[in-house]
Amino acid sequence: MDYSELKELWRKEEKNAFEGWDFSYLKNRWKDEGLPWDYKEILKKYLNSDHKLLDMGTGGGEFLLSLNHPYNNTSVTEMWEPNVKLCKKKLEPLGIEVKQAFNDSKLPFKDNVFDMIINRHGSFDIKEVKRILKPNGIFITQQVGGKNNEKLSNALIKNFKPLFSQNTLENNLKEIEKNFFEILYAKEFFPYLRFKDIGALVYFAKIIKWEFPNFSVDSCFEELCKLYEELNVKGYIESIEHRFIIVCRKRK
């Protein structure tokens, strides 16, 4: 296959639709090292069925539904309009409260509402989390750190500058403790992510716009070809991810 044929193939990947936060399209086309902790198991350790639960930045609600928490005790926020519509269609009929959140510093809830707030890969303002969480309430967040995919971003995007370099475990712990939370558990990890074909990488880079700004097959074609040659030698393209998790309790 010559490079003009590859370009057309990659352009098709670039145009593929994406909904919710579901990467099942890439099944068997990438491999993630995984994390030394299990986010869901950690949540279940603290979550009771009578708890008022908020899932911040729920995406399409896929993960939330896997928790099987009573729907009448469940609320979600989401910022991105297509996902808000999806949640209203999928979650509201079940009895789950769906709220669009435009600003992390002004969430559409009263004070001291929730027993537990969870946040998986979403932004948050710890002062606002504190406001809507009950005394002794639990906040659990798994974050994508500021060094996520940095090596791959530099390989694809000319003059790449990371947007969230300050998003580290250390910096978050300082801010959380400053706001009168007790840290119950915290861990940071840098797993590998390997793409088995360049089309999978194209699909991924087009979605993750903040890590691959202004990415397109046409503008990054030279870089994609270099990675294609690397893939033919190694059998994969490796990226290094950045993850950390924090479990904390609001003091009275």
Rank of each mutant, 00 (worst) to 15 (best):
W37K: 03
S75R: 09
H69I: 08
N171M: 02
G137R: 02
I208F: 09
L193M: 14
D55I: 03
N171L: 02
F164C: 11
K110Q: 08
I198A: 12
K174P: 02
Y185T: 08
F244L: 09
S239A: 08
Y192C: 15
F181N: 00
I207C: 05
E229Q: 12
E175A: 10
I237K: 14
L231A: 14
M79Q: 12
V76I: 06
V144K: 04
S239M: 04
K196S: 11
D38V: 11
I157R: 06
Y236Q: 12
A155S: 10
A200P: 13
I183P: 07
Y203G: 11
E175H: 07
E175Q: 11
R131T: 00
L9Q: 13
H121R: 03
A200V: 13
E222F: 15
L193C: 13
K44D: 14
K209W: 07
F18S: 13
K206M: 11
K106W: 05
E8D: 11
K90Y: 05
K110C: 13
N68T: 01
K88D: 00
N119K: 03
F63S: 09
L6P: 12
W37V: 04
V233M: 14
W21F: 14
W210P: 15
F124V: 03
N103I: 01
V84T: 00
G199L: 05
K161D: 03
N179K: 04
N159L: 01
N167Y: 10
I157H: 05
F114G: 01
W210R: 12
S153V: 02
K206C: 07
E81A: 14
P36Q: 04
